[in-house]
Nucleic acid binder design. Structure first.
Lengths: 215, 215
DNA sequence: ACCTGAACACCGTTCAAGT
DNA sequence: ACCTGAACACCGTTCAAGT
């Protein structure tokens, strides 16, 4: 006697809306993700989506969150290089599945909690392996742009506008311990970090070159 | 007796249209770049822009080109590390001036000639310093995402759709000699390159860590 | 509680018309 | 040769109305 949802169709949900949006993006590109078209993919009018998503912007944020969620998080006891490799390859595979990912992530005006959580995981992995907060911070900038390209100076309180309240809550709850340590312990000299990361890569390149021609 | 352009206003031009679009993006963000608003910034109706730009997409491509053009190209006799640093810092400064740059570059569906030319310059700098095409190729992937994030596998003929005819012309004219050598000489094993670049960075990080804690 | 239809302001683009 | 006004199809979003 419970009122059945209309003939054969599964009921809408935030999850289903976001998945449909990702499907549309996979099939026809990011620009094809319109409220009307996502609705159409679900057999529903565009306006129905607003019952499950605040608007287009929230829909895009939700897609970004699901995307970051597709990156494997290796258990804490995996050796650090192996863990970094798994994450990197997993992120790369996600971008392969969803070629619109870099454009989407680059277009999001605000850092999302999912992104900070992801970076917190990376930071933790490095710091448990003996990296200082300073070097871990640089490592993130170097490694991350390599895979997803959504790194900004997440840990610099002055670098962004008003942060997502959910991020502040997570910090207050102690849910992002490594991110917190980076904020407290690392010197936020953007230029120095950039120079450091750059030299680090350049030294690696030079060694690779000499190894190749020398041996 | 030459018919004067309308009272006081400079005549429109492709250059002026693109500059106005960049100004709008600088001031109000990339989403604010609409034909109507760019026209407004020039004191003109939106439809006038079509006399100087094929459409919105061409306008965005033009913005991307101007952006890449803002990156300094050091003379060929500058020592390679110094040249790489100058380019990197210059690109970084461009992104600082135009925060919408990563989103714009990530959103362009096709590689532009300006981008290939830029990468050709980088490749040349490295190869003149003794790098193999293989290592130079990897170097580009590693270095470039660090700064602008527009690297894709430019040199793999199968990796993209139909390339811009202007790019093919430039190749045919021998204007991109280093890009050509990379296409011919480098093995296009994307996975192997990714692994190599990743290990290169990881080794660098490990060394930085040991240097810090050891000394 | 969830979905809809009509409406509004805005978008890219076409085209015939102006000068 | 360049600019314009009106028009078209499409967009995100609001809101009153349906069930």
């Amino acid at each position: 006697m419970t009122p059945r949802p209309r003939a054969g169709r599964d009921p809408l949900s935030r999850e289903r809306v976001l998945r449909a949006a990702m499907d549309v993006a996979d099939a026809k590109g990011l620009d094809a993700v319109t409220m009307r078209r996502v609705g159409q993919a679900l057999g529903v009018e565009a306006m129905s989506l607003y019952n499950h998503v605040a608007g287009k912007d929230a829909l895009l944020d939700g897609m970004a969150d699901l995307l970051v969620g597709e990156i494997e998080t290796p258990p804490a006891d995996v050796e650090w290089k192996e863990a970094m490799r798994r994450r990197a390859w997993s992120g790369r595979a996600a971008v392969r599945r969803h070629p619109w990912a870099p454009a989407l992530l680059a277009s999001r005006p605000r850092v999302r909690l999912t992104m900070v959580a992801y970076l917190d995981g990376v930071t933790g992995c490095l710091m448990r392996a003996g990296f200082s907060a300073q070097v871990a911070h640089t490592a993130i900038h170097v490694l991350d742009s390599r895979v997803l390209g959504f790194t900004r100076d997440l840990f610099d309180p002055e670098a962004q506008g008003l942060p997502d309240p959910a991020i502040l809550e997570a910090f207050a709850a102690g849910a992002l311990p490594y991110a917190e340590r980076v904020m407290e312990e690392a010197v936020h000299d953007d230029d120095a970090e950039f120079a450091f990361g750059l030299d680090l890569i350049l030294e690696g390149l030079e060694r690779a070159r000499d190894r190749e021609s020398g041996a």
